[in-house]
Design a binder for these strands. Structure first.
Lengths: 178, 178
DNA sequence: CCTATTTGTAACTGAATCTGTTACAGTAAT
DNA sequence: ATTACTGTAACAGATTCAGTTACAAATAGG
């Protein structure tokens, strides 16, 4: 992993779908809309959605008003689930391509020792990710941003979401929906 | 990071230099020799050594019998030091190239929230790496391998290193040194 | 049943990254 | 002086990544 932006995009998608369920109508979001938000091509979104789907985190409908929607309660999905859903999720450090020379003691010993270390490191990483649900993360992303922008700590988040939808509507006109 | 094998190679190099100091004469190892053990090109080694040097972990001498040697006590260098010494050490997940659309609430909120998360994840990772010194890691790599290979739990490690050097000598002949 | 909309996936492209390599100036030991 | 190294620039090939086009399959709604 790393270097690529797939985990970031997958998380972005999941925040969108979780937010849609938590604060709005829970209807599907199509790939064109999500691509607009992520600022990329719809196919990039569909590729990642397809992996999230395989992991059972989202579901999707074809046809008019189709799109992706979250398949579980947002409080029951953690960022570790998202990380693991991605094909290249494993292996923080590349130990697979270790081709150390077995004619040398260190060459023989380095791969098992390093593999062990990478295992510890990865499990520490997953512990962090597993502690954060996509519900919490969506709140950090959406709720916090809206309250900061509107300097409003008292309205319900549903009210603020409605407000921002109106404000943003013009920018989404070409998509003919919010 | 990730995808590349630089951290693995840097660790391999450091195990070699630590082992040379801990179990042998502490004399410099040249890049040709290390390249043989890592099974790559000497320039690849020199590039990484140069980064380790900048971080103060190793030092190097030019000229005959030159090469790199460890600059501190192996018990005072952790794997986190090695990780941080590498230019591309930071950023487990790519959040720099986040180009989410600011016309959308999530697009505005995702980057700070994700940056925060990456910070937590990275610090958990560094905690794991900081707990392991290169001395411990060299023992796991060299000591363990030799005792397994010779099924010998009683000799000193220096004795086993001498033994394996004799056994390996033939394979290093073309390098004219072990 | 027909049409419009949307997913899912294959195939291709250009850009970027990674690794290996050659080359050579600079430095130090003998 | 000569020989043996480092340090670094420059380049090439392989691989990966992101974006794009294209199209079959599925489905909603008239």
């Amino acid at each position: 992993m790393i270097g690529n932006t797939r985990f970031l995009i997958a998380t972005h998608i999941m925040v969108g779908l979780a937010g849609k369920k938590m604060y709005m109508d829970g209807q599907p979001l199509n790939s064109e809309y999500m691509a607009y938000s992520v600022n990329t091509n719809p196919v990039v979104i569909r590729r990642i959605v397809s992996e999230l789907k395989r992991a059972g985190l989202v579901d999707a409908k074809t046809g008019p008003n189709g799109g992706a929607f979250i398949a579980k309660d947002p409080s029951r999905i953690t960022l570790a689930d998202i990380y693991n859903a991605l094909k290249d999720g494993g292996d923080i450090f590349n130990v697979n391509e270790c081709k150390a020379n077995h004619c040398c003691v260190i060459g023989r010993g380095i791969k098992p020792a390093f593999t062990n270390l990478v295992g510890e490191a990865e499990s520490a990483l997953l512990d962090v990710l597993a502690k954060k649900t996509i519900k919490e993360f969506a709140i950090e992303t959406i709720d916090k941003t809206l309250r900061d922008e509107y300097k409003d700590q008292t309205s319900t988040i549903e009210e603020l979401v409605q407000k921002v939808q109106q404000d943003e509507n013009s920018t989404f006109e070409h998509l003919e929906k919010i």
